[in-house]
């Protein structure tokens, strides 16, 4: 077995999950200018929802679809109920609201589903394939395919549809967009819904590996922030690329850096965030804005 390549591939697979979450963060940030600290909890709620649906007899795929749709509606509703009233407030107030959402989601998950870990059975079994000395499990392949589909769907939504055009316009020039007939409040809420839907896919497809607990995605969210910081919160493609870099980087660091191991791996994204933001405020991949020297 090729250990280095195996580490890179495994890191890239989790990097896609991180990239999915970073993409969700970027979609919300682009539209509303808000860092949603509860984004990881959105994904966790969605994963629990998928689990709940499978226990009610729905197959994994059906649960994934229903959970994604419900998550979209949930994201939309959360924006309308909790964010819209404070949309014009200062950044600190909004930050406090999203951190509160994080904590509330935590306790809600605990009170509904309990704090003991659960496991969501993926439909992929234990099948594994060896290609060029690297082992790919069916779960890994499914994770890659589903996340690539989700990311492609978001890209098409933004680039090719009228809703996407509205979201891009509203993000770039809110007032001019309103004066052209764009319903700003609804468009921003759709952005939150789309972000929650991406999180639902990321959370559900990774759940068979990670298991389910209320804080299962908190480290992924930190990694997602690192990815978005690296890719630039303004760039959707940058967020996904950042996710891959962070995923591969932390996997390599965990395997090869002496003394890091599994316990200190989370130091790596934190260092990445600090390093990226101290060199460039806007991320490495972003096209707009200026670099502070």
């Amino acid at each position: 077995m090729n250990t280095l390549m195996q580490t890179v591939v495994t890191g890239a697979v989790s990097g896609l999950v991180i990239g999915g979450l970073a993409l969700a963060l970027a979609v919300v940030y682009q539209g509303s200018g808000i860092l949603n600290f509860a984004q990881g909890q959105f994904a966790t709620v969605s994963a629990y929802l998928s689990w709940q649906l499978t226990t009610w007899g729905l197959p994994f795929w059906g649960a994934l679809v229903v959970s994604t749709v419900v998550s979209f509606l949930l994201g939309f509703a959360v924006q309308q109920i909790f964010i819209r009233p404070v949309q014009r407030a200062d950044e600190l107030s909004i930050l406090i609201v999203t951190v509160s959402l994080l904590l509330i989601a935590d306790s809600l998950i605990g009170s509904i589903w309990g704090f003991l870990p659960k496991s969501l059975a993926g439909p992929f079994g234990e099948a594994a394939y060896t290609i060029a000395d690297v082992v790919f499990t069916a779960q890994m392949l499914a994770q890659v395919v589903l996340l690539v589909i989700a990311i492609a769907a978001v890209t098409i939504l933004f680039r090719k549809t009228s809703i996407g055009l509205r979201m891009r316009a509203a993000a770039a020039a809110p007032e001019s967009s309103q004066l052209s007939g764009i319903n700003l409040a609804a468009t921003l809420a759709i952005g939150w819904g789309v972000a929650a839907a991406i999180g639902a896919v990321a959370g559900t497809v990774s759940a068979p590996v990670t298991g389910l607990s209320p804080d299962v995605n908190s480290s992924t969210l930190l990694l997602g922030f690192a990815a978005a910081a690296l890719g630039g919160f303004h760039s959707r493609a940058g967020a996904v690329a950042g996710g891959l870099i962070v995923g591969i980087g932390t996997a390599l660091a965990g395997a090869y850096l002496p003394g890091v191991g599994d316990d200190l791996r989370l130091m790596i994204p934190l260092l990445l965030i600090v390093l990226t933001l101290s060199v460039t405020r806007e991320g490495v991949f972003t096209r707009r804005g200026t670099v502070r020297v």
Binding site: S162, L165, R166, R168, A169, A172, A173, S176, S177, S180, I182, R288
Partner: peptide, 13 residues
């Protein structure tokens, strides 16, 4: 005008 959008996209908006 809306930056980041092309001329055609601005007109579609």
């Amino acid at each position: 005008t809306i930056p980041g959008l092309t001329v055609a996209e601005n007109l579609r908006v």
